[in-house]
Amino acid sequence: MTVATWARRHVLSTEDWSRDEIELVLENTSAMTEVLSRPVRRAPPLRGRTVVLFFAEASTRTRVSFELAAKALSADVVNISAAGSSVEKGETLLDTVRTLDALGGDVIVMRHSASGAPYFVAARTTAAVINAGDGWHAHPTQGLLDAYTLRAALGDLAGRRIVVVGDVLHSRVARSDIHTLVPLGASITLSGPPTLMPSAWRCGALPPGVTYEPDLDRALDGAAAVIALRLQRERAESGLLPSLREYARTWGLNEARVARMRPDAPVMHPGPMNEGIEIEASVAHGARSLIAAQVTNGVAVRMALLYLLAGHPS
């Protein structure tokens, strides 16, 4: 596949993407890292285009990453960040979409607490929609940047087993990692408390290429990489976990645990981290950590997607 044969209007989830499409994004990401390494980090393909950042759920990191990506491609950037939810403001998502569409942006990058909200928006606008995270459902740019980062560290992912540990039930990152890494040939071992695993997956109806191993030590034995998920502190209060302390002891990444993996196996985390809960500081900032590289690569991946959706004459 080439830039010319790219046919997607939106990036809502990579679940239905072909391997070719994922590869094309990764190739373009590589080109974008070159742009980012120049003294003046700016290229012209989105000049005159408007990227609307619509973040209905608080997020600094992803929003800034998209903003840098859009500006590096010379786009105009408009921020519409709702302090609370749109419902609290008395404005429905339908109202917001109509407004966004009328504003005439070329790309809408959206973050929303409701799973599926980007589909709702995409069906009602002429702009291209990029999902920057919807509820528990998907965070496709995170999946793609994780794939890019792992490729850069490990080379071909075929036959590589990657552990994703933590609150899979509520994690859009876990779902997008599955839907991006498995098509590239990797297999995924999910680990974490049974209460934070979708029941269908815990009971064996797993997506292709995915297994579940509640014992983290066993999951890590011989693994090619591990991705730790952020644990929301309120999970302990809602009866899904006995305590954060027990979670840290049972599913937290520490030196001894990561040593069970292959010698070259990296450690990743989508951020922001709860150091001392899902990951110890020495691991988060240790030799295996690719967490800083994930942040850097995130900008390049988002540039690649903006370019594919709006940056080339079609």
């Binding site: 509820g135 528990w136 459902h137 269908a200």
Partner: peptide, 15 residues
């Protein structure tokens, strides 16, 4: 319904 479909969609399920 809580099942494979809700797991994939990331929607809270009713068992």
């Amino acid at each position: 319904h809580e099942g494979a479909a809700s797991a994939g969609l990331g929607l809270p399920g009713m068992p």
